[in-house]
Amino acid sequence: MTFHNYTFNVNFKDGTETTVLCYEKFSSPEILHPLIFCQGATCYVDELTPEFAQDILSRTSVTHLVVYNYRGLNTGRTNVPKINQYSTKLLADDLNQIVHFCEMNIWKRFTKISFAGYSFGGVIMQEYLRHFGDKRIRSMVYVLSLCFRCCRLDYRKLIDYAFRYQRYVKNEDKKHENFTYENYEEHTKYWNKKQIKKKLLVYQSLSMIFDRIFDRHSCVFTQQDLNIPILMITAKGDEIFNYDKNKDCLSNHYPPKLFKHVHLTGSQHNIFWKDPIFISNYFVDFYKQFD
């Protein structure tokens, strides 16, 4: 099967620049199934493993897989005057603008789109659903993410996870410490990205925490009658969105015929990075069943 990928820059309404990466497979215009993948917190477009994208394109009906940089990742500027204005609603609005851009410039049709979100991406996807409805949505996949308005995020574990991440980053830092003439550009890029990520992680974590605390009773799944298939992939050892310790609204309230839940035993929050093909297998089954 033939694939190609391309990146381009998009400006949001307020002028903030972002980068969009689209993986596309060779198909006919009649056959169209776009998937927008919302990545985890502070993930750049080039950090989505290409094996995952290619596996999805080759084994499912998906024709376009789109990922984009969250606000602030491109230049380090979020373009919001105050930190509390960086909200999940703002990010959902950004996602809506990405959808609109793709409809106008990539597939050039108003068609239904599948959404998938890993970790923080699931939060944005859910906020999109809340503010813009399911009119444009074909299906949704939560990867290691839960309804963030209903679940109890384990902040202590979140801090543990952050420390583990710091240890991982330390090892990565060592690889980029020694500058030479040949690797100067690559290493500079790494340190610049790291600085931006550090700042943005604060914004993103706070937006999620504040929106959950001050607006916790507005879960879209309990308030609206939605009619889209949803796949939820959770892991027993997930340090952040732990299904076993929470009563999730989706598995309690969502129509069972539209809802599929996979609970991975022996996996942690980082399973998506460690074994992307293992995760994409569940996408394949889901799209076969509901497409």
Partner: peptide
Amino acid sequence: NLHIEKQHEEKER
């Protein structure tokens, strides 16, 4: 069916 849907979606856009 696919082509009519495509025509319709393109027209909307």
